[in-house]
């Protein structure tokens, strides 16, 4: 069993971030885009705690709590928006939400 070094955590974080960003860029379902955003946030959280442990510094772990708090608030607002949009448009296709444009 090889030792789990910091590199593994970073690699997992990168993979999660990449999947998340690709999900945001490529998918049309608003819920999935939302989940992808959460995944990117959590990849960052992972990187924070990994560096915190590696460096022996609690700042990263404290920051993660903030991120989780903000993400929770964001999820509450975001899901409410999606529900509201779905009620009017009967769709949560993100490409159809294009009324605000120049």
């Amino acid at each position: 069993m090889p030792e789990v070094t910091i590199d593994w955590y970073i690699a997992l974080s990168v993979i999660l971030f990449t999947i998340g960003s690709l999900g945001v860029l490529l998918r049309r379902n608003a819920i999935i885009v939302f989940m992808s955003v959460e995944m990117m946030l959590n990849s960052a959280n992972l990187a924070f705690v990994a560096f915190a442990r590696h460096l022996g510094d609690l700042d990263g772990q404290v920051l993660v709590f903030f991120v989780i708090t903000v993400a929770a608030a964001e999820v509450a607002v975001g899901l409410a928006l999606i529900v509201a949009i779905f009620r009017t448009k009967k769709s949560i296709n993100i490409d159809e939400m294009n009324l605000l444009k120049g």
Partner: peptide
């Protein structure tokens, strides 16, 4: 000119 960048597509 600039408003053309505001396409309305979130992606």
């Amino acid at each position: 000119g600039i408003r053309r960048t505001q396409t309305g597509f979130a992606r």
